[in-house]
Design a protein around this nucleic acid. Structure first.
Lengths: 337, 337
DNA sequence: CTGAAAGCGCTTACAG
DNA sequence: CTGAAAGCGCTTACAG
């Protein structure tokens, strides 16, 4: 059923070489007669010939495929990243293989190995934490990859992050300016540099405004079971400090649960200052007055792919490795209160 | 840098055959001595050998990869589908290639061709509309694919849909039972069978309750620019029928915009009956009293992959094609008002 | 117990 | 202007 180059060559009494050249657009360059070219095109079309890209890849050493590894495909933020990465990849003629690590580093390492085995030309990854072995392997093998959203300060890799500390600082400063005095912070995954920087932004904003740091107001929600943990933590916070007047969320993943808590406990969010790193479309109706730092998802995705393809091409041309790129993108801040 | 079977064979003074058998676990079966096996394993590990899966695929004719084509990767519903499909695929040892069609059939057809060229073993697709050529090609070539969420009643394909009409019927019936009398319907993409069935469910529910169908209350939002179109349409609806007391949404994609409209126009959604096909996690706080029919995303994803892998295996074993599977999954209804 | 050889479907020097 | 041949990195009859 499936028709190959050889079939076409046989049927046309031509060599595979000729057919290959014509079909890959090198007909003129190689000086194949128009008559022959025409014959090949017509026949290929009639047979509905589709080249086996795997076979081509085996020869060229390029699969035309890149990999994306993220903690959770269905998370709003990461699914947007995926969308942008796929769109950007397509522009360069690349296809996308995707995989969710579920925030487990064993899975993540397995996925890196699998993708590399499948000859993916490069990887975009939002790593769960330092996946020691495989990240280091990629570095040692000078295998193209770029880290997004998170990064390893001590490793020399391409990475794209946001201005974590600055955006957080500004959001909290804004809450202070609006008169809030008991500003709580809710965080997750603070073992990740990106997240700890957001916490730092919060702390600095308070300090710079001469406000005291109240440990009861700075809480980290354990990621495991965070959906229930957050309820307990909010209970504890309100018990210790009933007059909390504002919240800074270091990540959007906590928002929906927190709001459920507020709703269940009749806490009027219109009286509470709110700020969050990243913007959810639901905020428009859910919390119109929340202040947000929107992560530039489009840029993160397209820049990641640009850097990756760049590195893939360098490698292909056997040029010596370029310097790694580290990009810090600014969030767009929306002060709505 | 990259080490191949041949390298290992040379370094160990063995044939590629032997090395290949050992590494693919057929050592015992082929009666390779333990000494040799051990030597191979140790050396492969030391060299950090990773097989080139592309080369293997070229020989076996199986890429170990499946494709997923959806309208929008970042849509909550489809990103959940993607997550489930990826998880299920992994269980079978398959990797996932993903692509967003942006609801454009030309893109969709291109993606089908590209995926097939890349030798993806099968495709899960939520087609934008009848992508005539390529869907028919897949059928003719008996290429494994399964259609999810949407389907073509006139084509003999595997498909998985929800009980569109029934769930819609029940939701609207419920609104009626709760005393709502002016129940509006907002729909999109009704050229898709799945969506038109939801409209039918609405209409039947009204009819069965002896209520009149008011065309001013049944509106379709053109998908192109629906985010602004919906505002105009709601304006028109309220102008013609100011006392609308309930809304049935045939799809979650309209919800956020509609709620923004309600919010901007001071329409209290607690006084309005609400029902929607599919559930959003934001509903918990956004509209706690909305009635929903939650689409069984996990099942859709895992069943789709099961059927696909099944068909791939049949084909591999040269068994004659099984009957196509058509699955209608029930939504889980939540009556909250 | 192990190996030489053919083949998967392409591409690309090399030759004429 | 066109073709024979080698090779990409595997697997798998076939042979001994």
């Amino acid at each position: 059923m499936k028709v190959s180059l050889k079939d076409i060559a046989n049927q046309l009494q031509l060599s595979k070489t000729t057919v290959s050249w014509v079909l890959s657009g090198k007909g003129d360059e190689k000086g194949i007669s128009m008559a022959t070219q025409e014959k090949v095109f017509v026949h290929a079309r009639k047979m509905n010939y589709q080249p086996n890209l795997l076979a081509r890849s085996l020869h060229t050493g390029q699969s035309g495929t890149i990999g994306l590894i993220i903690p959770e495909i269905s998370d709003t933020f990461y699914s947007e990243i995926a969308q942008e990465v796929e769109a950007a990849a397509e522009k360069y003629g690349y296809s996308l293989m995707i995989s969710g690590s579920g925030s487990q580093w064993e899975r993540e390492e397995r996925m890196i190995r699998l993708f590399r085995s499948r000859q993916v030309d490069g990887i975009v990854i939002a790593p769960t934490k330092q996946s020691r072995k495989e990240i280091l392997h990629m570095i040692n093998d000078s295998y193209p990859f770029v880290v997004v959203d998170r990064y390893f300060p001590e490793l020399n890799t391409n990475y794209i992050i946001i201005d974590n500390e600055e955006s957080s600082y500004k959001l909290v400063k804004h809450l202070i300016k609006k008169g809030h005095r008991k500003i709580a912070m809710l965080s997750v995954n603070s073992y990740l540099k990106s997240l700890s920087l957001r916490e730092k932004g919060y702390l600095c904003a308070l300090k710079d405004s001469g406000m005291e740091i109240n440990p009861a107001l700075c809480r980290e929600v354990p990621f495991h079971n965070y959906k229930t943990n957050i309820f307990t933590i909010l209970d504890e916070m309100y018990k210790q400090e009933p007059d909390i007047d504002a919240f800074f969320f270091t990540s959007h993943v906590l928002i929906l649960e927190a709001f459920t808590y507020f709703y269940d406990n009749n806490i009027n969010i219109n009286d509470t200052g709110l700020a969050c790193i990243h913007d959810l479309s639901a905020f428009r109706v859910l919390a119109p007055r929340i202040n947000t730092a929107r992560m530039p998802v489009e840029q993160m995705g397209s820049e990641a792919v640009r850097i990756l393809i760049n590195e893939i091409n360098q490698k292909q041309l056997k040029m010596k490795q370029l310097k790694k790129e580290s990009i810090v993108l600014s969030c767009s801040l929306s002060y709505r209160e």
